[in-house]
Amino acid sequence: MNRRTLLASAAIALAAPAAMAQDEPVKAGFIYVGPIGDGGWTYEHDKARLAVEEHFGDQVETVYQESVPEGADAQRAITQMALSGADIIFTTSFGFMDPTVEVASKFPDVMFEHATGYKTADNLSTYSARFYEGRAIQGHIAGSMTETNKIGYIASFPIPEVIRGINSAYLHAKEVNPDVEFNIVWAYTWFDPAKEADAARALIENGNDVILQHTDSTAPQAAAQEAGDVITFGQASDMSEYAPSPRVSSIIDNWAPYYIDRVQAVIDGSWESQQVWHGIGEGMVEIGEISDAVPEEVRTSALELKERLASGEYHPFTGPINRQDGSAWLAEGEVADDETLLGMDFYVEGLTGEIPN
């Protein structure tokens, strides 16, 4: 499903060595969809930027722009960063994909790295994490701990990454609790604390005693804390200020090793376009500490699941699994292929409601 923009390969071959010839440090730029203080997605990307600074010292200069809206504003921001002399630019949201492709076509001597997308070019790589592995662990804990059998899920946008997460969490909650139901609220935002809090409160008022989220702020944790007797999970970052209750564990995005590796490639003149999709095994997805609010037997089984995922012994999408309409998707023991997962646009059997357009 990769669509490549053709650029002159000779231009790319010269781009990275040019950085080596400079006396000035390599300049690495970062475009963020949210504020660096969001406590979640952008916070972790910026932690990784700071790790780049610490690792390379005077060899590298980093710059960033936060709270960049997806769309035309993103194209302007990326263009300005390229014009300012950036050697490599990381654009860190799915909605930055087409703007990144457009700007990359105009700056063949700049290296671009786009998070969670699928379009590449000679000077444009993609990278993402297998968040659905962490969702499997969250679903396992959530299904084991709910007392109402109702789990709320605050979803951002109906893109494959988010749909994969919902499906993975549901399958693993259902595995340990056949009576569980998921109630999904589409927030249509990555970061909007007021909207996220409203979604969490609405779910709680309707009897959901576990809240999962694919949005970036800690507002759902605050809403759950106000309500009491509701558990949550950190998203993208540990959000440990809400431990041991309501936050019982978290998915943590660890971008630093990847960013350091790709900046080093620019310094070395070895940067090449690639597509990376790493998970728990490679360390790009981490599981935050499971708090004492989780029963010991659930904690143990969740950590066992984590080890099976890390080793590759187990895949979260292993059949038999049907689609929402009851049609067969994966046979007994069959594992989903990456192409299907990357384009996932359907719910699995048992989930209710429709995926918005």
Rank of each mutant, 00 (worst) to 15 (best):
I290F: 09
E282A: 14
E286Y: 06
L305G: 00
T300L: 11
I287M: 07
I267E: 04
E304I: 07
S291D: 05
S273L: 05
T318P: 04
V266D: 00
K306S: 00
T318Q: 12
E307Q: 15
L303T: 08
E297A: 14
S273V: 09
V276Q: 09
E282K: 11
L305R: 04
E304K: 14
E313D: 15
I280M: 12
I290P: 05
R308G: 04
G281E: 07
L305H: 01
Y314N: 04
A293R: 10
V298F: 04
E282I: 08
D268I: 12
V285G: 00
Q275T: 11
L303W: 06
G288K: 13
R308T: 00
E282R: 04
V294A: 05
E272Q: 13
S311E: 14
V298Q: 05
G269K: 03
I290L: 08
S291K: 07
E313W: 05
G288C: 06
W277F: 14
S311T: 13
W277S: 02
E272M: 09
W271L: 10
V298K: 06
T318N: 05
G279P: 02
G288H: 03
P295W: 03
V266E: 00
H315D: 14
M284V: 02
F317Y: 15
E272K: 09
T300P: 06
D292N: 13
W271Q: 10
G279A: 07
L305A: 07
E307C: 10
I290K: 00
A302T: 03
S311V: 07
S270Q: 08
E307M: 10
T300G: 09
E286C: 09
A302S: 13
L309N: 01
S301M: 12
I290N: 01
V266W: 01
H278F: 10
Q274Y: 11
R299H: 14
E296N: 08
G281N: 09
I287K: 02
L305N: 02
S301W: 06
E296R: 08
M284T: 10
I280T: 05
Q275L: 12
Q275I: 10
R308V: 01
E304R: 13
I267Q: 05
F317W: 03
G319W: 03
E282M: 12
S273Q: 13
E313K: 11
K306Y: 02
G312P: 04
Q275W: 03
F317R: 01
Y314Q: 05
S273H: 06
G312H: 08
P295R: 07
S291A: 12
D292V: 09
H278K: 13
G279S: 07
A293S: 14
S291Q: 09
I290T: 09
G281H: 02
F317P: 02
E307V: 09
V276W: 11
T318R: 04
L305V: 09
E304H: 12
G288N: 06
D292I: 10
E286V: 05
P295K: 11
V285W: 00
I267D: 02
P316Y: 14
E289Y: 04
D268N: 14
L309Q: 03
V285I: 15
G312C: 06
R299I: 11
G281T: 10
A310E: 05
I287V: 15
S270T: 15
P316H: 12
G319S: 13
H315C: 11
I287F: 00
G283C: 07
Q275D: 11
V276K: 09
I287H: 01
S270P: 01
